[in-house]
């Protein structure tokens, strides 16, 4: 039985970015009543992004007021082997794309005098080898969320982020975490989260070796 169908009724959203977690969240938002356009390979070009919004709005029948962006998948690679092109393809693609999508949403909502919400899906906060681009992106995004939350608060536009191992390449195999990622995304994006903005929270960031209890 669908128990959350009223959470996002009447809302129109874009879920951008690749990965299983983004698919899961798109499904959860639809379950919560939102009309969703899925963009699995989002552009980082501002003009293309504007076109993507136009297309989504035409398809969904109105202003987009909900954005979830999962960014760019980044395979682990040791920092000294990354050249400028590789850096641009990872770090820049991730934070540029997320910012430009968010700014496009913000401009449209401000013009339409409508409230809305932004949610970034991010990997867990644990730093491991080969994640220099990902780590830099995570720091940038966490503070972007907080800055935009205050900048747009009096416009009714909220920005939040969820960290989860389910958002990492390969994903998390634990079904409960993936499901809760979807429900939490829908909750934070809905009117029930009207007083929640500027947060970066996890789902289950316990290191496996500690959570085993051994």
């Amino acid at each position: 039985m669908n128990v959350i169908s009223h959470w996002l009724a009447g809302r129109r959203g874009i879920v951008a970015g690749g990965g299983e977690a983004a698919d899961y969240v798109a499904d959860a938002l639809a379950l919560a009543g939102a009309a969703v356009a899925r963009i699995a390979d989002p552009s980082t070009d501002a003009s293309d992004i504007a076109v993507a919004f136009d297309t989504a709005q035409a398809k969904l029948g109105g202003t987009i007021d909900l954005l979830v962006h999962a960014g760019v998948a980044m395979a682990p690679v040791s920092a000294e082997t990354i050249d400028l092109d590789g850096w641009r393809a990872t770090l820049s693609a991730d934070i540029d794309g997320r910012f430009l999508f968010t700014a496009e949403l913000g401009r449209r909502l401000i013009a339409a005098e409508l409230p809305g919400s932004v949610l970034f899906l991010m990997p867990s906060s644990h730093i491991s080898g080969g994640r220099s681009a990902g780590a830099a992106a995570d720091g940038a995004l966490a503070n972007l969320v907080k800055s935009l939350a205050v900048e747009w608060a009096r416009l009714g536009i909220r920005t939040n982020a969820i960290r989860s191992r389910a958002c990492e390449p390969g994903g998390l195999r634990e079904e409960s975490v993936r499901r809760s990622l979807g429900y939490l995304s829908a909750y934070l994006s809905s009117g029930y989260g009207a007083y929640i903005t500027g947060i970066v929270m996890g789902t289950d960031e316990l290191p496996p070796e500690r959570s085993s209890g051994d």
Partner: peptide
């Protein structure tokens, strides 16, 4: 619905 969420702190303060 939060069966996969543990060890977390959720801030609710309107920013």
């Amino acid at each position: 619905l939060a069966a996969g969420i543990t060890g977390e702190t959720l801030m609710i303060d309107g920013g």
